[in-house]
Write a protein that binds this DNA or RNA. Sequence first.
DNA 1: ACAGTTGTTTACTCGTCAGTATACCTCTTA
DNA 2: TAAGAGGTATACTGACGAGTAAACAACTGT
Lengths: 212, 212
Amino acid sequence: MARSSAAVASPWSTPEERAREREQKREAVLGTAVRFFNTKGFHATSLDDVALALNVTKPTIYHYFASKDEVLFECVRRGLESIRESATTAAAHGGTGRERLRTMLLDYAIVMTKDFGICVSRTQDTQLSPDSRTRFRALKREIDIIIRHVIEEGIADGSIKAGDPRLATFTVTGALNWIAHWYDPEGRMSAQDVAEGTVAMLLTGLSPGGKD
Amino acid sequence: MARSSAAVASPWSTPEERAREREQKREAVLGTAVRFFNTKGFHATSLDDVALALNVTKPTIYHYFASKDEVLFECVRRGLESIRESATTAAAHGGTGRERLRTMLLDYAIVMTKDFGICVSRTQDTQLSPDSRTRFRALKREIDIIIRHVIEEGIADGSIKAGDPRLATFTVTGALNWIAHWYDPEGRMSAQDVAEGTVAMLLTGLSPGGKD
DNA sequence: ACAGTTGTTTACTCGTCAGTATACCTCTTA
DNA sequence: TAAGAGGTATACTGACGAGTAAACAACTGT
């Protein structure tokens, strides 16, 4: 037997393990912070609150993040990345524009029922530092463009009917973002129900005669 | 000639005039404050900012309002009142549910392009005091109920097709509220264009075959 | 003229909170 | 075993901003 496999579980950690632990602690800070931000609001949440909930003190948080702004930005970045990834994936799928749009919007809606998604929807760019704000806007814009593209493709292939694609994008993202403001995980509807219901309504509208 | 009509313009003001002036000053505070709230955010706006913009000092504002919270609440109350009034009026109109809903949503959308409407959409209830928050929620709820009712009536008379009326209400109000987050008065679209486009999209959806 | 009311200012208090200086402790590595 | 790096705590600074005390000024009504 090789020496490495003969060793019993070592009480000493490898550099990789240490890096992973550090990463886990960073995650824990974000996970705790995002819940505070979502329930109390960003400004009403102090890093002392977050630290206390994690049984540490504020300087510990500053060991993992440079500023409160960085904590918030990291939260919204995670939410936006989720959306962007699923949107990019859906955009690359086959099918009509409408089919791809539906996939995209369903994923978007689901993200809006989770902590980081909720944080994205509730965060106003005035809460971020000028730098983070620029990056925040850029990420949102990327997502908007992906959605708008697929809408335009749907119009081109005849599977979508919309006057102004830009306005259509704002309308659907608005309805979807709003989920973060009212969705209650304890309520009667599951995230899946909400997502499917909202997306169906956006695609078919409220008038009779719409089909999908 | 009666004595009152013989008098030249008096340099002394009547109690009514004084009350009106006081009311005008209150309005001026609200008008200035709401613009600051909308551009810089509520927390980032100090009453010193507002006072400075009005060429007065902070205690003057406290002469007209009891607290910063009251200023904010008054702003959102005005926005919500506009919506509620037009919704109530539209609900009392004749026509099918869908026709009344369209009127309602058009007015709602227009409010969302104005200062107090924008403030409503951007204000999170965590920013308000517990008391104001309760009243804020109650007002929003009233509006939701009016809209939900008209949707239910539309379903009953066959002019509207929707799975869950509650979900439908959230979807349309979400899309409409979102206008406050992206609408730019300097942009190419007028408030009227935005309102009509958004409402049309909500009623007919994005799939081909919808009609309205 | 004088007492009261309204509106405004100057100058202050007080609490909160982001962010930091510094020390200490523990584990790693040479 | 000593030097260093990583992680945490105590104790602090400094700014900001809501709200107030107290005085002053103007006007009103008696």
